[in-house]
Computed example of a mutant assay.
Amino acid sequence: MHFCYQLIALFTLVASLLSPVHGAVRSDAIEPYNATLDNFDYPFDVGRFTFDSQGETLSMAYMDVKPQGDPKATVVLLHGKNFSGFYWERVASELVGLSYRVIIPDQIGFGKSSRPEHYQYSFAGLANNTRQLLEHLEVEQATIVGHSMGGMLAVKFAKYVKDKTARVILINPIGLEDYLKWVDYQDPQVFLANELNKTPESIRRYQQKNYYDGNWRPAYQALLEPHIGQLKHPDYPRVAKNNALTYNPIFSEPMVYDLPQLTVPVTLIIGTRDRTGPGRAFKKPGVTHKLGQYHVLGKEVADTLQQGTLIELDGLGHMPQFEDWQQFKAVFFPLFED
């Protein structure tokens, strides 16, 4: 009997060590969260930037984390589609420790930012919103880091806001291929139906399969908390609508043609196991092309860059910064050392 208790204690200890700051959570233990995650704690103080866009007054949430003393420079961290700024906590903390100022916006339609009733989403528009935020914060120039969909936005920002872009770092960005060459365009209504049919378990299964090669750790569960909480709230139809609308720029604004035009240094950090391929379910008749072959796409895109560096992380997928922190850390933070 004592041996059984010792085993239980050991398993509990291991789970606690694997959990991040927010901890592992069970779906039934998550409280409902409204459209702007008002009761969901972020790791740093959240500021608000209010501006007018498309006839509406919108609020853009952001974290502005500063080091002790004067910063070396500024880094902007752009989140992916299925995330918001809070998941950059560990990366931001390390950068601040290296004396960088770190700005982490939630894009309109994500996280704690406004989710409008009606909004025409585009990467050009989101880049413009981000430009206004940086001007509001008196940032002259920054390193722009983007993960997943944030990588697409980072490239568009570098294209349209050249004067504020010192360099670009892309972590497993989507958009390394022109999806509409291979798949049929879908009306946002198709994606809205999918969003409204989501369950806590379906969200977890998607991420487990597509991000972590079928594996699962308690640390991953914490990333699901805001999504599961919003499923429980009466605001969810508005959240679902915005989630559906943000698919449009992913398909209609490919970045693969923009990358060769960038004159700033671009670093690609690619987990080569990644197979993320938006629209895979909507392939055109007769198409046999395999989407999301990151072990091939990284090399192909790197060859087109004017000032490009490719860093491949063998055996890692779409979330290298969570799947293997030490391996990611070893290649990412040296980019910020003198």
Rank of each mutant, 00 (worst) to 15 (best):
85 G>F: 07
174 I>A: 03
269 I>K: 01
26 R>C: 03
181 K>T: 08
115 R>H: 10
20 P>L: 11
221 Q>N: 14
197 N>W: 01
17 L>T: 05
153 L>A: 02
230 Q>V: 04
173 P>S: 06
131 R>S: 12
280 R>D: 12
19 S>C: 09
149 M>S: 07
50 T>K: 09
128 N>D: 15
272 T>Q: 04
45 D>P: 02
244 A>I: 00
303 D>V: 03
58 L>A: 01
319 M>A: 13
55 G>H: 03
63 M>E: 06
104 I>H: 09
241 K>Q: 10
291 L>I: 05
68 Q>H: 02
160 Y>D: 14
137 L>D: 06
230 Q>F: 06
196 L>S: 08
309 T>M: 05
13 L>R: 07
274 D>C: 15
47 G>Y: 00
130 T>V: 11
60 M>V: 01
245 L>C: 08
145 V>F: 04
271 G>S: 11
204 R>D: 13
81 K>E: 08
148 S>T: 04
46 V>E: 07
76 V>L: 13
294 Y>K: 00
224 L>Q: 13
118 H>M: 06
312 E>V: 02
249 P>N: 14
324 D>V: 10
43 P>Y: 06
28 D>F: 05
53 S>F: 12
203 I>D: 09
216 W>Q: 11
233 H>M: 07
47 G>D: 00
248 N>Y: 14
22 H>A: 12
71 P>A: 13
322 F>Q: 08
260 P>K: 14
124 A>G: 12
333 F>Q: 01
188 P>R: 02
252 S>W: 04
88 W>A: 02
270 I>F: 07
285 P>V: 06
212 Y>E: 03
19 S>N: 06
80 G>K: 04
289 H>Y: 14
56 E>V: 06
104 I>G: 13
50 T>W: 02
246 T>L: 08
327 Q>S: 11
81 K>V: 03
2 H>V: 08
14 V>F: 10
108 I>L: 10
112 K>I: 00
4 C>P: 00
200 P>L: 04
94 E>S: 11
169 I>P: 00
235 D>Q: 10
222 A>E: 15
202 S>L: 12
120 Q>C: 09
93 S>K: 14
283 K>T: 11
219 A>S: 15
32 P>G: 07
158 A>K: 05
331 V>Q: 10
136 H>P: 06
80 G>Y: 09
70 D>Y: 00
84 S>D: 15
283 K>Y: 08
6 Q>G: 01
39 N>Q: 11
11 F>A: 13
249 P>V: 11
255 M>E: 05
232 K>Q: 12
245 L>N: 14
111 G>E: 10
188 P>W: 00
2 H>M: 07
166 A>E: 13
152 M>W: 00
271 G>I: 06
